[in-house]
């Protein structure tokens, strides 16, 4: 499996809203997080949903987001976070200095 990202890499979720069966939640689109782990390669749900074979399998990552980058005015500890599984085609590299948001 060739993966574009490794644990610790900063990534931005694409700001995109295609119709269809999408497993990238709206609330993380356009946001910046850090790769927590590589989960493996899995058939693409966006294709499987339409009865196609979902091949080639695509790398799936768990991405950690700081709560404060997701929700303005988040009430809680600064370190609180959300971890979300995201397929590689939804991710792009984020510069080290960039902070979340669109």
């Amino acid at each position: 499996m060739t993966t574009r990202f490794a644990p610790g890499d900063r990534v931005r979720v694409r700001w995109a809203h295609p119709p269809g069966h999408i497993r990238t939640p709206y609330y993380v689109r356009g946001k910046t997080g850090v790769i927590e782990r590589v989960c493996g390669s899995f058939r693409n749900p966006e294709e499987l949903a339409y009865a196609r074979d979902g091949q080639p399998a695509r790398p799936l990552y768990r991405v950690h987001f700081d709560q404060r980058t997701l929700w303005p005015g988040y009430q809680g500890r600064a370190k609180d976070g959300v971890e979300v599984e995201i397929f590689e085609h939804w991710l792009e590299p984020a510069g080290a200095a960039k902070e979340g948001g669109t």
Partner: peptide
Amino acid sequence: VRVDELRRGIE
């Protein structure tokens, strides 16, 4: 019936 087909139908 793939799980993603099930979900799409529900959505």
